[in-house]
């Protein structure tokens, strides 16, 4: 199963919203993946087996080295933006 990690600074709140809406966008695309939420400090462990990291433009620099594809999300509530970016990363 594909693993997608949503990252925020504190690990509560914004990453949870990103996780919920990523799951909705995946459902819309008819794709399956495990989506988890984590914070920037533990991204290296949380995303060790992840194929995709979802985050804010402000947090890209905090992620460091990763083999995962990083998707930068501007509007966490815009399912069109999320679905478009996820579809591109999954294709």
């Amino acid at each position: 199963m594909m693993h997608i990690v949503a990252i925020c600074g504190a690990g509560v709140g914004t990453s949870g919203i990103l996780k919920v809406n990523a799951e909705r966008a995946l459902a819309r695309l008819g794709r399956e993946a495990t989506v988890t939420a984590s914070d920037a400090a533990s991204v290296q462990t949380a995303a060790a087996d992840a194929q995709i990291i979802l985050t804010s433009p402000e947090l890209v620099h905090a992620i460091g080295k990763t083999y995962a594809e990083i998707i930068v999300v501007n509007n966490y509530f815009d399912l069109d933006e999320l679905a478009e970016k996820l579809e591109e990363a999954l294709s």
């Binding site: 925020c8 504190a10 914004t14 919203i17 985050t55 804010s56 947090l59 509007n75 966490y76 509530f77």
Partner: peptide, 23 residues
């Protein structure tokens, strides 16, 4: 402090900030 450390990522949609910290 969360915003000072990590930046303005709490602004998660146009015009909206979700201010928060850890438990």
């Amino acid at each position: 402090e969360v915003i000072e450390e990590f930046g303005a990522y709490v602004v998660i949609a146009p015009g909206l900030a979700l201010a928060h910290a850890r438990p």
